[in-house]
Amino acid sequence: MTLVRLEGVHKWFGNNHVLKGIDLEIVPQEVLAVIGPSGSGKSTLLRTMNLLEEPTEGKVFFEDTELTDVRTNLNQVRTHLGIVFQAFNLFPHKTAAQNITLALDKVLGLGDEEARERALQELKHVGLEHKADEYPGRLSGGQQQRVAIARALAMRPKVMLFDEVTSALDPELIQEVLDVMKRLAEEGMTMVVVTHEMGFAREAANKMLFMDEGVIVQKGDPRAMFDRPEHERLRRFLSRIL
C-alpha cells in the first residue's frame, strides 16, 4: 500500500525540461530525504506531489486517487498532504492561531471552539502555544516556520512535504525547526523532505533520494549512501558539500 505514487512524471517550464520521467513510491512511515544540486528538480518533484505543479506528462496518485485526473477534487485530497515552504507563507494579517484555524473552519468545517482547541494543541506540539495570538511579523523566522508546520499538521495530513524549510533561516534558528521535524519523524509521520541539511538526512531519514538534472540518480538507505556512495555524480555532490 503506497501513499504517494508518481508514474513517468515529466515537467517542462517552457523549453526547460525539469523532471525527466520520475517513478516514485512513498509508503507509510517513510521519511524520505531528497538531496541534490540546486536546479536538479527537487522542489518541483515535491510540488507535483500535491499538484501545486501540474506534470506536463505522467500520473500522480494519492492512495487510490489519481490527482492528474481532471475530475479529482484536489481541494479534498490536499487536506491529506501537508506542505511547508521555504518562505513560510504564513498569512501576515492573521495571528498564529488564526493562521491555523482558517482552514480548519473553511475547509474541514470545525466549529470555532474545536478549531481553536486544535490550533493550540498543534502550537504546543511545536512549542509555541504562548505565541498563539501574535502576528507572524512579531515572530522570528524559526518560530514562523514552526507555526507553518503546526498549520499543516492541524489538517491531520497523512503525508507531510517539506520544501527546503530551513534555507531561509538564520543559522542559529535552523536547529529548532529540525528538532520539530525529527520529533515528527519519530512519531511515525510519513515525510518527504527536500533539504540541504545533510545531518538531518543522515540522522532522521530512513530513505534517501539523490536527484540530478531531473532524474533520480540513486535511492536507498541514507547512511549507506553517505558512507559508500556508489554513483559518481553522488560522490562528486557529497565531496562538494561535506
Binding site: I83, A103, K106, V107
Partner: peptide, 18 residues
C-alpha cells in the same frame, strides 16, 4: 501579494474563491 500566499491557501485545501 506574493505567489506563496495563494499556494499556502490552496495547499491547505481551500478553493480559489476561499
Amino acid at each position: 501579494v506574493e505567489r506563496g500566499q495563494m499556494e499556502a491557501a490552496r495547499s491547505l485545501g481551500m478553493t480559489y474563491p476561499q
